[in-house]
Nucleic acid binder design. Structure first.
Length: 651
RNA sequence: GCCAGUUUAGCUCAGUGGUAGAGCAACGGUUUUGUAAACCGUCGGUCCUCGGUUCGAAUCCGAGAACUGGCUCCA
């Protein structure tokens, strides 16, 4: 406490309590409200406090560090820092060493409320996010100050020499931080805007005590073990051939294709029962399609560049209806685009015949492959790819039918979740941002409001648990994404249910209503199983590769104890195979223990061990993957049980 | 696309300037076996790619690619 003594002298410090959390200072692009800050749990306070301690430590090592924001996040915290030195994991030990000193010093977190003028003055003297005054101003803190509305209190928090612009809340003392560990360094844009400078984001884990932290790291290890990229390769489900096919373009190997086909069977049965009509469409379409739909320009950056065909008389004519951005073209040529979505093709199917109100709702379903040019850094195994096999459908309906259709889709989600044992999920209702109309969202402010109100009403009336997230809608309308968690707590956005009030009218789609006038249908885009790629990626991690019988690439393997039983084993396998069961016989020279070991490692769902005793008794010894020996059963009973479990898609 | 890190046999990984290694897998043989690995042998590498430094590069330097963790974006 030297250079900052002047700051202390004129103001009052106090300890934060839940009742005096009046300040509301953001350190993030998304400002926490006062209410949200008050609701911060003890653990979140601890994590946020740990971010301050890390900043303190980094400043001891590099006093010129400029800090931006350092919130609590799931499992820990981060702090964004600008520093000429590139922090690497090799620096973590040194930083953690300084952090330990600060924790051991057990400094109180003292709160100080200041005037805006004082805060600006301190930021300009480099004192904020610092141990002392510095030659360079605390530039990011100055930026953060600008985000604090007039009239809101401005406060500092101080631990030891470290003073930070911060609304808190914090734990009482640095010594209250139980256990922490720095985990990774990444980059992030200041305030999340890619036009702003890139900062180094140092992540750490923080917990009440060492036991909880160790449990967290054990969970991470488990997550690593279940990683779909690891299991997908070990189990031969898919491969990504970046050299000949391309990044983000997975090849389904036979075992993975089996899972995809089983999912398709499930979807097609479900959709048949729900009154959907399957359709099939090509993977490409002319530029006119996407000018009309609005994909050009609103979605252009996510599309693969076009193929251009020199074809006399086939040129696009700019200035046609719905043409927002076509550039004049002198030569006659046609551009074709790979489809990023199926909806335009389905709209053309709707347009292919005159439609009556009696035809509605019309539900067109397709397992169509779409192609999206995701940026290279965004690709992740099967979770984020450039070729997407979508469980897609478009429901054309009247506004009166909307609520029922929308609920029907939601119920379909729940049916699937039950089959897959998904217990934790949340519906994210994504709305538009009025300031980005015409850029990210179609410029139809009235229709946005109407459809968003409609969806909100349906959600409220159906009593579904949902959260509302602004600025994440599709370009053509509000949407609901279903977010699920795998058993290890990893989060996935799988299914989607979107309202489209814009594109049908751009295509001039109409139905003839009762009153003999033409009306534009509403369109619901829905994909309850999302894409094969992401859904199977999720299932791999959800089941840790231990698929239920109906999904398992290798359902049954018959293991003869000696070569004497190979004939008997084959007869069982033949019986199962004739009933479409995926079965094989292990006729290798291994001992039975070896055959079992291999079958277990390969995650074969059901093993039928047959030795002399079983053959004599016309029986089989059943063993289930991961569950061990289930005992001897008569052959007919075991076979019937397998058929039944597959038919019921038993978990 | 941006920031950082990584890339050695099919897989997991050793190898810090001097002849490229291990285990598992694969293949061949022997073994005829009772609920998570019998034994012996063989094969297998453009050390990601291209360029540079050096008498000599998996190793040092530069560029590129792919992947990983984040950011932005998204099913």
């Amino acid at each position: 406490m030297n250079a900052d003594a002047s700051i202390h002298s004129s103001r009052r410090f106090c300890f934060p309590t839940s009742s005096n959390m009046e300040a509301n200072i953001t350190q993030q692009a998304e400002r926490k409200t006062l209410d949200e800050r008050n609701r911060m749990t003890e653990l979140e306070r601890l994590r946020h406090s740990c971010a301050h301690v890390m900043a303190t430590a980094i400043l001891r090592l590099w006093p010129e560090a400029q800090f931006a924001s350092g919130p609590a996040v799931e499992n820990g915290f981060y702090y964004d820092v600008e520093l000429p030195h590139r922090i690497t994991p090799e620096d973590f030990a040194a930083i953690e060493g300084e952090m330990k000193k600060e924790v051991k010093a057990n400094h109180p977190f003292e709160k100080l409320v200041v005037s805006r003028e004082q805060a600006i003055k301190d930021a300009q003297s480099g004192r904020l996010g610092a141990l002392s005054e510095r030659p360079a101003p605390s530039r990011f803190k100055l930026g953060n100050l600008e985000d604090i509305p007039e009239g809101e209190p401005i406060s500092y928090f101080k631990n030891g020499d470290f003073i930070d612009l911060c609304a808190g809340p914090h734990v009482m003392r640095t010594g209250n931080i139980g256990a922490f560990k720095l985990t990774s360094v990444a980059s992030a844009y200041y305030k999340g805007d890619e036009r702003n400078p890139q900062l180094q984001r140092i992540y750490g884990a923080a917990f009440k005590n060492k036991t909880e932290m160790e449990a967290y790291f054990a969970m991470l290890e488990e997550a690593k073990r279940r990683d779909h990229r690891k299991l997908g390769s070990e189990m031969g489900l898919y491969t990504i051939d970046t050299e000949y096919v391309g990044p983000g373009l997975p090849l389904w190997l036979p075992s993975g294709a089996i899972i995809a086909e089983e999912l398709e069977k499930l979807a097609k049965e479900t959709e048949f029962l729900a009154g959907y009509l399957p359709v099939k469409t090509p993977h490409i379409a002319k530029q006119k399609m996407y000018l009309t739909s609005g994909h050009i320009p609103l979605y252009l950056e996510s599309m693969f560049p076009p193929m251009e065909l020199a074809e006399a008389g086939e040129g696009e004519r700019p200035g046609e209806p719905g043409d927002a951005s076509a550039t004049p073209r002198a030569e006659a040529s046609t551009k074709y685009y790979l489809k990023a979505m199926n909806c335009p093709h389905h709209h053309r199917i709707f347009a292919a015949q005159p439609r009556s109100y009696r035809d509605l709702p019309l539900r067109l379903a397709e397992y169509g492959t779409c192609y999206r040019y995701e940026q290279s850094g965004e690709l992740i195994g099967l979770m984020r790819v450039r070729s997407l096999s979508m469980n897609d459908a478009h429901i054309y309906c009247t506004p009166e039918q909307f609520a029922q259709e929308f609920n029907g889709v939601n119920e379909m989600y729940l049916k699937y979740f039950k089959i897959f044992g998904v217990e934790k999920y949340v519906m994210r209702f994504s709305t538009h941002d009025p300031s980005r109309l015409g850029q990210k969202f179609v410029d139809e402010p009235v229709l946005w409001k109407q459809t968003e109100d409609m969806v909100r009403r349906v959600l409220n009336e159906s009593g579904i648990n949902y959260i509302e997230v602004p600025n994440e809608a599709a370009f053509y309308g509000p949407k609901i994404d279903v977010q699920v968690w795998s058993v290890i707590g990893r989060e996935f956005t799988l299914a989607t249910n979107q309202v489209d009030f814009a594109v049908p009218s751009r295509f001039g789609l109409v139905y003839r209503d009762r009153d003999n006038t033409d009306k534009t249908p509403l369109c619901i885009h829905r994909a309850p199983l999302g894409t094969h790629e992401r859904f199977i990626g999720f299932l791999i991690e959800h089941y840790a590769g231990n698929f239920p019988l109906w999904l398992a690439p290798q359902q049954v393997r018959v293991l003869p104890v000696t070569d004497e039983q190979i004939g008997y084993a084959r007869s069982i396998a033949d019986e199962l195979h004739s009933q479409l069961v995926r079965v094989e016989v292990d006729a290798s020279g291994d001992k039975i223990r070896g055959k079992i070991q291999r079958a277990e490692l390969e995650k074969v769902n059901t093993m039928l061990v047959v030795g002399g005793r079983e053959q004599q008794a016309c029986a089989v010894a059943v063993r289930i993957h991961g569950k061990g020996d289930q005992g001897v059963k008569p052959r007919a009973e075991a076979v019937a049980g397998i058929f039944q479990a597959i038919k019921e898609r038993r978990a």
